[in-house]
Write a protein that binds this DNA or RNA. Sequence first.
DNA 1: CCGCCGCCTTGACCTGTGTCAAAGCCTGCG
DNA 2: CGCAGGCTTTGACACAGGTCAAGGCGGCGG
Lengths: 241, 241
Amino acid sequence: MPEKFHEHRLTAQTAALRGCSMFADLGSDDLDRIAKFVEVRRASRGDYLFHEGETVRGFFILRQGAVNVHRLGADGTEKTIHVFRQGQSFAEGALAGTGGYPASARAVEDCDLLFIPRVEFLALIKSHAELALHMIGSMSQHLRLLVNALDDLQGKDVETRLIHWLLKRCPQPRPPGPFEIALDVTKTALASELSTRNETLSRALASLRDAGQIAVEGKRIRILAPQRLEARFRGNLGEAD
Amino acid sequence: MPEKFHEHRLTAQTAALRGCSMFADLGSDDLDRIAKFVEVRRASRGDYLFHEGETVRGFFILRQGAVNVHRLGADGTEKTIHVFRQGQSFAEGALAGTGGYPASARAVEDCDLLFIPRVEFLALIKSHAELALHMIGSMSQHLRLLVNALDDLQGKDVETRLIHWLLKRCPQPRPPGPFEIALDVTKTALASELSTRNETLSRALASLRDAGQIAVEGKRIRILAPQRLEARFRGNLGEAD
DNA sequence: CCGCCGCCTTGACCTGTGTCAAAGCCTGCG
DNA sequence: CGCAGGCTTTGACACAGGTCAAGGCGGCGG
């Protein structure tokens, strides 16, 4: 491999690493050191990145695409734990523990990711306390995420969870006019992300449509008045929760 | 304070620290260093250790008792995320993040705990990569725990969750004869731990009793045949999940 | 000893959501 | 062009579990 190309590959990865919150404020020398053992991976829609129970070889940073982290129930139906999207890292929590990955991960879109091998990374951490703190911070985020997911499930009905999902991808502060969201996955996949079935999601969408909150055109959902939708969200929380 | 007493206090805490998995295999000099800034705390049943949103001052190790980590819904009902018991640490995930504790913690029994202040601990981590790895390991455990809780909720009905809870505190390998479990909290609190209501828990217990699986006498539950109960557990998973 | 107050139990009822089934709609392929 | 196989929508139905209400049981203070 020509040296020039190798150089280029390194800087491209360095940039990608910096984009991930975990490595955001590391010195560029450190980043280069990491970039040396990082692997670039591509995954097509449907490919598995790892399976539950498999021994942990490393973790991932998602540059492009979306990954569904889930478990399989005894009857084979998969239960989504979380869907990660670009810029996020996942499975770093599994690095330190024993017993392999606690869940499986499958690309729900074509993905472009970085794979950080376990042993090299752990070795690096030992000499870079800074990095360890970032790692802890990142895991901390995931903990919060799961805590949120957990009380979403406990307290909120499907309509409320759907509204929550919509509002999360609507800019803050809320635009007064309509805002359109393009679904990057099938509605069935979205249903799974919301821990429900496509039928139920379909009904929830219909109910919001009938209430004049949204307009649905295939894979595009238009929020007619984000502020009004947010009001309904708070309303739902008040009684149902 | 007499030097002798101080010495004693230190070694007692050192021992307590070693009991916690997070510090288990640290050198005793390191433990002593930690012990210096650790605070001993007691909490009576009902006391709050921290509230959701409060700025994070440190984390806890539970030496004795039980702590309920939960959130309050909009209507004021509390939703349990997890109940920690002796030997476990909690809230260490909040150390690195921003935005304060993601949940509240309340003693459900009289508790005896160690409080590890945030700034001192973080400073120590910077110079002790070993410790950082342990920290990561511990958070990793909590992540797994939440993942488990999450798919418990998604997939399993209350009876199954109850059986799961019972089996978790029944020795492995399963004794062939009866095994008795003493509830350390009220049944209402247990219901909350299982993310349900006392009425529903009551029914689940009754149903297991009528099925000849358990005997309930106030706060003591006798599992008549652990192996048979485990069989039922697997049965439930097969269909319902 | 009695009454109060928490906790637990049981019954009746209602609602959300999963399940099953049928039909509509797209998209790609022969 | 037309058909097949996905996805989505809608309806009918079943059931787990939450809610409300009415006791029962027990412990503790007066």
